[in-house]
Design a protein around this nucleic acid. Structure first.
Length: 561
RNA sequence: UCGGGGGUCGUCCAACGGUAGGACAGCGGCCUUUGGAGCCGCUGAUCCAGGUUCGAAUCCUGGCCCCCGAGCCA
């Protein structure tokens, strides 16, 4: 087997970087950064950005920093910074010794602001928030200058110092850039750069009562760290002139901001605000609920970092808005797990089978292949006996067209065991089949018939007596609409009521006894499952279904109605 | 309406004036001790209208449609 080396991705950002390298724009350096605000858990959309930024650095022999954009203490929390670090590492990226916080720069940022004031490019405004909004104008009308706009440099300096010293009430004054109240770009209409906010910061505590705004802090943070390419999402395109303006005013080192389209995934939401709402309202069990599109949710669901990285490479990077189909993500995890997940047999909805001609009390061990995709993974022994369980859906008393599985008079193969033929059924008082009777052909041990006889189907099974119980959770998409909340609707109205189904009477082969948390398996013919990292115990197994296997029969059955 | 972006198979991404290509999905076949995996094939797109050009997805003009922007959020 040879590893397929995929060609390096090409996209408009890599083209820009290659050009910058050719022209020696940044002295041949490539230095990016991933700048999350610690106000929520990372999701698959962040993974796209992480893979881009760290990937670029790796590709061009550069560096990528992890920087927390923590300029708003009222929304941020240490819990989030910890989860973010864990998730970035888990995804397989390393910021080495370059862990930074915008809050590390508060003093420098303050000095930049003083510099701006000294240059007559910033002023303290006493207008209220409402007044500032009114003065801003609208998308089509210019704004009006504040009556405090022409304060002297000395007065501004004194006032700003007073803001820092805590002499003024929260919200009573702000520091604003002096740019152009008539600019068609509202971001340039004297944006606020510092606000007074007495809140305890998760890192700086109560050292500060003024905090810089994003636009001011971000560019200077990039500049301080020597970032070359500051990659962000499309909604910041309008902010680029301001990003550039700040750096130009003080003649600071000037990184290049580049914008790309954020990821949207069908049938889910990638908004930290909305995700937080699901968590707070208990719609899901937490940020790491396996139905969540968060990194921690996907991890608990059984996704691998490799699959997520491959997914991110597959979807590419561009500037047009798009909604990526969930099947792309599912393909990525199947492709990875097919290669590496050991196969086992597990029956989710058991139906009892009695082999009439198999001796009572006898048992034998049959060889089963651990992973047909990887011969090196070897074989294992699976116990077989007279009473088995098979999947309810693998038996139909009245088989529909093209149904290959077990039904009265029909013969199938029990995986790695024997051919069995159905001789009848036992029903309960409601007329439901509660037991299937079969005979087996002792000459087909292992699954091959010496007479060359073929069967259409091979089904999985477990020995009733030897199997162990398990709980299994089946997950489905969180929402019933491709774009929840589209058109102003409440996104929670399209929550999928069937996104979680818990199966309790499952039976799995004894190999699984004692499985640790977070182990991934393929339950043959059923899908990929992993032991839940919080609820599964070695003696009380709980599996999460990561993703189903492709199911041709399900398609046929669906077409048949 | 003002400013900034963007429109290529059902979906995502390529094609950088020279045969519109790949992946996923779908459909059909081969193979198979997983109706899995794999392999082969098919279907299928340049927003519209003009123009430039031997030749346009690409350049020009004019439309149309979509997204973002009026936080002391990021």
């Amino acid at each position: 087997m040879c590893a397929t080396v995929s060609p390096p991705p090409t996209d408009f950002i890599r083209e820009i970087i290659r050009r910058d390298l050719e022209t020696n724009k940044f002295g041949g350096r490539v230095h990016t950064r991933f700048p999350p605000e610690p106000n929520g858990y990372l999701h698959i959309g962040h993974a796209k950005s992480i893979c881009l930024n760290f990937g670029l650095a790796a590709e061009f022999q550069g560096k990528c920093n992890l920087r927390f954009d923590d300029t708003n203490p009222t929304k941020e929390d240490i819990e989030y910074v910890e989860s973010i670090m864990e998730d970035v590492h888990w995804l397989g990226f390393d910021w080495e010794d370059r862990l930074f916080y915008a809050s590390d720069y508060f003093e420098q940022l303050y000095q930049f602001a003083v510099q701006l004031i000294r240059a007559g490019k910033a002023y303290v405004d006493d207008l209220s928030a409402d007044e500032i909004r009114e003065h801003r104008g609208t998308l089509t009308e210019p704004g009006k200058e504040s009556r405090y706009r022409c304060r002297s440099i000395e007065e501004n300096l004194g006032l700003f110092e007073g803001m820092r010293a805590g002499k003024f009430e929260d919200g009573s004054r702000v520091l604003r850039a002096k740019i152009d109240m008539t600019s068609p770009n509202l971001n340039m209409r004297d944006p606020v750069i510092y606000r007074i906010r007495r809140a305890t910061h998760h890192r700086t505590g109560d050292d500060w009562c003024i905090y810089p705004m994003y636009d001011f802090a971000h560019g200077f943070s990039d500049s301080i760290e020597g970032i070359t390419h500051s990659i962000c999402t499309l909604e910041f395109e309008d902010h680029r002139p301001l990003y550039d303006w700040f750096l130009e005013q003080v003649d600071a080192y000037h990184p290049q901001q580049i914008e790309f389209a954020r990821l949207s995934l069908g049938y889910t939401i990638l908004s930290k605000r909305k995700l937080l709402q699901l968590v707070q309202e208990g719609v899901v069990s937490g940020w790491n609920d396996p139905r969540m599109p968060t990194i921690s949710g996907l991890r608990r669901r059984g996704y691998t970092p490799e699959a997520i990285r491959n997914f991110c490479e597959t979807i590419g990077v561009a500037k047009r808005d798009s909604i990526v189909d969930m099947t792309l993500l599912e393909y990525a995890i199947r492709e990875d797990l097919n290669r590496r997940a050991p196969r086992v047999m597990g029956v989710l909805r058991p139906l009892k089978v009695v082999i009439e001609n198999y001796p009572d009390g006898q048992a034998e061990e049959l060889d089963a292949i651990n992973n047909p995709e990887n011969p090196a993974s070897g074989t294992r022994k699976v116990p077989f006996s007279k009473v088995l369980y098979i999947e309810q859906e693998d038996f139909r008393e009245v088989p529909p067209p093209k149904y290959y599985r077990l039904s009265p008079g029909k013969e199938v193969r029990l995986r790695y065991a024997y051919f069995v033929k159905c001789t009848g059924v036992v029903k309960n008082e409601n007329g439901e089949v509660v037991e299937v009777r079969c005979t087996y052909d002792p000459t087909t041990r292992g699954g091959d018939a010496p007479d060359g006889r073929k069967v259409k189907a091979t089904i999985h099974w477990v020995s009733a007596e030897h199997s162990i119980p398990a709980k299994v959770r089946l997950y489905d998409r969180l929402f019933t609409k491709p774009n929840p909340g589209e058109g102003g609707a409440d996104f929670k109205e399209s929550l999928n009521p069937n996104s979680l189904e818990v199966l309790t009477g499952c039976r799995v082969e004894p190999t699984l006894q004692g499985a640790a948390a977070g182990c991934r398996f393929q339950f043959e013919r059923m899908g990929y499952f992993c032991t839940d990292s919080v609820d599964s115990k070695p003696d009380a197994l709980v599996f999460n279904r990561t993703v189903q296997l492709r199911d041709t029969w399900a398609k046929i059955a669906a077409q048949q109605g």
